[in-house]
Design a protein around this nucleic acid. Structure first.
Lengths: 343, 343
DNA sequence: CTTTAGCACTCCGTTTGTTCGAGTGCTAAT
DNA sequence: ATTAGCACTCGAACAAACGGAGTGCTAAAG
């Protein structure tokens, strides 16, 4: 069933109001606040909207609050995108001017920027190294039997992994192996590096084929399990909102958000989409049943390599958040590109 | 003025009880709970203890709670060290068995272990790289004008820094410079590396003296300002305690604990001492006025290189925490030593 | 002189009652 | 179809009442 124009207007007014006040909005308040119908009319419509599932009543004789269905409709069709003030976008831009050393630093500062500007919680996933191309591999001796493997990709992302090495390999040989691998696999996608046949290689590498194979396998595996792949910022911002004035709710939220594996999975999944908005129970995470997650992906050279997002109460200011994400998305794109100026 | 035996016993009982219950303890409860004096006697003693500053009354006709002075006395003289059950120390040991790859990983898992076992908040500082000796420096090209500097010290700690490089340096030269620096400064303390005169060097390095100097300076400077130098775990544990059932208190605590710079400074300062116990207002941090911080230092080759600690409410179980820290200290010592088996 | 029983008093946390305001649904009039 | 009016409902906020745990003081007992 379609909602007529009036129902839509009323619904929108309710959502707008609720986003601001966080308390149930009633018919009188609405009609006083610039609606062109009387409270009674609005009341009737509200009753209809309730049976249609767009509104809910905490208890009889309270105002209505929007249901998730309402937010969905709001986000998909009714919301008009806010545009940031010059001030804000300048502020945002500032975050990207400052930390220009290294992709990691940029993404970390992105998380901080997002959480500080939105006042919600921000998560940023480090770029999925798998889709990038290897630029440099360096093995550095640590102790007998252990070395540090540093991988640098064409997107300028680096990653350290501690690996086991045969005890009879010396520093010079490690260096030669590093160079050989770099030469051989340079510009290969990381995800395909390990699957390529190592045996077919001649020279330096074939003598250590077993080791090299396990090394490459380890690199790919550790990449995905690294806890540091998600940057989190402003988790405690949520304590500002009445939704979380109950310590227990706050606790479950914080616990959820600290599950970096889950956060990573969530963002990874979202990185195929330009934007996503996931409302309340649409979230898979237990602890996000009362929140919404808005994400945007970021690209390098046209391919999406990661995403970032904002987590807030379901009544978050979607329009504003989306504008901010969009802004950050372009900023981020520019900055990341600048790391690749040599082509 | 000295406290007589009875006063001491009563005070100790009050502290013990308050640590458990978190609510003011009264004279009747005490005398019923195994004290050999009547409630009236205890009451008189309590009145004395209050005028002496060891106890405080939230309001007339409430029980007494220990003052900071009382905790101080308790920690310094009255507390008998708890000893961990076999189960617990085995559990603890398990944390160290698992993650044996890399100092960073070990310390991260230390933080986790501490917070999970104590149920308080744990902080661990990464070893102060300054007192360690350089083992390896590797420069890896990132883009034009930028490179990644990886430093490995004799304690097995690694550190990445993105640095600017002159645009005309190619990969091969970077590699040569890396090797030259490694050869020249190997086994020098990191803190002295930069102050050594670079100009006096011949060969490869002298041609790039300016660059090398700024590089070394950068390495030392970035080391101390790196936010990642502190590992935090279990910050949300504090929400379990009635002291933090007020969301605002929780918020200020969490905000404080997330100031990694401050945490680092705190731990750094404590790393000269085997153990420290800092109670309530003895803490410098604004947000720790209602907490206590207990720290222990850890050593490599006899020199203290860092410390770790537990933050809890002032009424935390000091005896237990200290035992755990002591246990962790030895475990950690063993593990870190194992990274140095080659001497 | 020290300890303890007894008593009056204090104060908090909780419960119970009351009021007030905002909101609702329904009906009848426009 | 809309709206004014009315009776009703419910929760938040405030106040009074109560019970319990604890105290300080005094006087008696050891």
């Amino acid at each position: 069933m379609e909602l007529d124009q009036r129902k839509l207007q009323i619904l929108r007014a309710i959502v707008d109001e609720y986003i601001l006040s966080a308390s149930p909005v009633g018919s009188k308040a609405l009609s006083r606040g610039g609606m062109k119908w009387s409270s009674a009319t609005i009341r009737n419509e509200m009753a209809d909207l309730e049976t249609l599932g767009y509104l809910a009543q905490p208890h009889t004789s309270a105002g209505r609050i929007p249901s998730e269905k309402a937010y969905r409709l709001y986000v998909d069709q009714m919301m008009q995108r806010a545009h940031l003030s010059d001030e804000e976008s300048k502020l945002l831009y500032g975050y990207f001017r400052e930390h220009v050393h290294g992709v990691d630093a940029v993404l970390r500062s992105t998380a901080k920027a997002l959480s500080e500007i939105t006042h919600y919680t921000a998560v940023v996933m480090m770029p999925d190294i798998g889709v990038n191309r290897l630029r440099h591999l360096q093995l550095i001796p640590l102790t007998i039997g252990k070395a540090l493997a540093v991988v640098v990709t064409d997107a300028g992302v680096s990653q350290n992994t501690v690996i086991d090495i045969p005890e009879d390999i010396g520093p010079e040989e490690l260096d030669r192996i590093s160079k050989a691998i770099t030469a051989r696999f340079s510009d290969c996608r990381m995800s395909t590096v390990s699957s390529k046949l190592v045996r077919e290689l001649g020279g330096e590498l074939s003598a250590r084929a077993d080791f090299v194979e396990s090394l490459l396998a380890r690199l790919c595996e550790s990449q995905s399990s690294d806890r540091r792949m998600v940057e989190l910022s402003g988790a405690t911002n949520m304590l500002e909102y009445p939704e979380y004035s109950d310590v227990n709710k706050a606790k479950t939220f914080l616990a959820t958000v600290e599950q970096k594996d889950d956060m990573y999975r969530m963002l990874k999944k979202a990185s195929n989409m330009e934007f996503t908005v996931t409302i309340g129970s649409e979230n898979e995470q237990e602890g996000f049943q009362d929140c919404s997650v808005v994400t945007a992906s970021y690209r390098v050279n046209g391919t999406p390599v990661g995403s970032f997002g904002v987590i807030g109460p379901t009544r978050m200011d979607y329009a504003r958040v989306l504008s901010i994400l969009k802004n950050v998305q372009t900023n981020l794109g520019t900055v990341l590109q600048s790391f690749l100026k040599e082509e």
